[in-house]
Design a protein around this nucleic acid. Structure first.
Lengths: 316, 316
DNA sequence: GTTGATTACATAATTAGTTATGCAAATATA
DNA sequence: TATATTTGCATAACTAATTATGTAATCAAC
């Protein structure tokens, strides 16, 4: 298809669909050719019955990767043409144990001959081709099980969008954003406290003038994330990472990571040894991010915040 | 899937179906992720509209390999959500020329970003894998267009079944079969003639004793095909190939070819130079077979048969 | 030993496509 | 130029799957 070369690999799904359709169409004609009264869609179920002699519907579904209702219907169809018998006595009355009838067993012998020919035809296609479709499918099943297409796309989205994110130092024009972004999440999960108002209303006095820094994340030149590093008077810690906030509208763009990295790098440049932070375990994505940045849990330090139930540190 | 390794390549269709399902399922979730109100199945149609600006439904269908009703429905769905407009004035009033609306064009810009991410994800899968699924699909589309799976299976069936066919020399016990098989086809297409009865009733006298031969094709030890080589008194030709008959029940097993080969080989062994035959052009498969065996059309020879309207020869 | 959760299955509703059919417009043909 | 054929499309009917839902049987936990 010329179409697919034009469109590119986004059309993988469509291309697969078409290939599937051509193959199954031919499959139907092949059964006709052999004069066998058999529907292609019965194949995987029938095959399981050939192998297992007696098996339940759910077992078949799990094995062949169909839904249970799908197998249920196929079994019913095969019962009406006399290939399968059901309700073989089992202890568990919910289970519907099914098996081939005499006629089914007879048919399986005919089918085996046909499958030899089909297998040979597919083999010949594989031999003729440079790219092994069968092997590719097997490999892709594995790769997609490891990490789904969705996950892979999310990753790529993050990377692409984080390229549009700029991390810049604080300027007075970001004063409102610094407060608003923090108030947004704090008041969603907790309550604003005295210490919050101090820092958010007077960042110059409480953060910058004391040797701290604030970074702002811009997405398309809009401030969508902020984070502060506050100079500590402590012996062990040089800076506290605090007031990190990312707008919900801009989530999934790696912004937290980029802000955290900016803080850590800046601390390094200033010769810091250790960074400290306080948080709450209900903020799972945040805790996750801190872990990724390298922070480790510590305990026992004094804090002015009620909402703090976890403390972490990072040796720069 | 363990199932597919157990079953083997007959299950290619099923395996493709499952892969298609997983990919399209994820595709739907990807659109959700980007907050785009767009159905995966719209994709190929929408893409064509992006490329072509104005295009008819049948044109789209042909290009993307869908049926026309499928495109028709998709277009209608996209019209109801305001992405597409229809019935742009054309000279030909049957045609329904469609195009993106302003809103559609706007959406296409969002979609392009998403497709970049999907393309990158597929690319990464291709890089991670040894077997290139995309390339395999392209190659298989080509190979199947050259020769469909059905045709390939038919070929394999012929080969397998012709292995069960034995070509043996005539024996008295095949006398009835020799006559019956010939009467069957002659009386279907023509009328039995004087010369037919002579040869079929007394093959010993009219064929074998004069230095000719008869071969019988056995399928599961049943005589299902016959063919005679009759010694000719002519200067140019050594033998006439005649009375070839294959039971309709045993067609498609290459039996004609095997009988013909037996005749040709036997003629060679006896040092023959040229073989002759008579036939009728309404027997297309037979004429085809003679061509494959190497026979060429000649003309102008006398014949006792009314039904003869083509004469052929083979230089051994 | 009752109650709640889980399991096995059937049935119903939905989905994304397909063929089949019908009709009007356009084209070919006698 | 009348008539037959072809084309473009919509609509209907069907297909092969899916999710959603309901129900009886079984298992688990107090």
């Amino acid at each position: 298809m010329d179409f697919f070369n034009k469109v590119g690999k986004v059309a993988l799904g469509s291309r697969l669909r078409l290939m599937t359709a051509t193959i199954t169409d031919d499959a139907a004609r092949i059964y006709e050719l052999y004069g066998i009264n058999f529907m292609p869609k019965w194949f995987p179920v029938f095959y399981m019955l050939m192998e297992e002699r007696e098996i339940t519907i759910t077992e078949i579904a799990n094995e062949i990767g169909h839904s249970q209702p799908s197998v249920s219907k196929i079994i019913q169809e095969m019962i009406t043409v006399g290939l399968v018998q059901e309700n073989l006595k089992t202890a568990d009355k919910r289970r519907n144990s099914v098996a081939l009838t005499e006629q089914g067993i007879l048919l399986s012998k005919e089918l085996k001959l046909q499958w030899i020919d089909v297998e040979a035809a597919v083999e010949s296609l594989i031999t003729e081709s440079n790219h092994n479709l069968w092997a590719a499918l097997e490999e892709w099943e594995f790769l997609l099980q490891q990490k789904s297409l969705l996950k892979r796309v999310i990753e790529n989205k993050k990377i692409r969008e984080s390229q549009d994110v700029q991390i810049v130092p604080f300027e007075p024009k970001y004063l409102d954003a610094f407060k608003a972004l923090n108030v947004e999440w704090i008041s969603t999960y907790f309550e604003m406290e005295e210490a919050d108002y101090k820092a958010l209303d007077n960042p110059k006095e409480y953060i910058l003038d004391k040797g701290g820094k604030i970074f702002v994340a811009l997405y398309h030149n809009e401030p969508v994330g902020v984070c502060a590093m506050i100079k500590m008077k402590d012996d062990t810690y040089d800076f506290e990472m605090a007031k990190m906030a990312v707008s919900p509208k801009a989530q999934g763009k790696n912004i937290g990571w980029l802000l955290g990295q900016a803080i850590v790098n800046s601390a390094k440049e200033q010769g810091a040894k250790k960074i400290y932070l306080e948080s709450n375990t209900i903020l799972k994505p945040a805790i996750n991010l801190y872990h990724k940045l390298g922070f480790q849990k510590v305990s026992g330090l004094a804090t002015p915040y009620k909402r703090c139930n976890i403390q972490m540190e990072l040796a720069v």
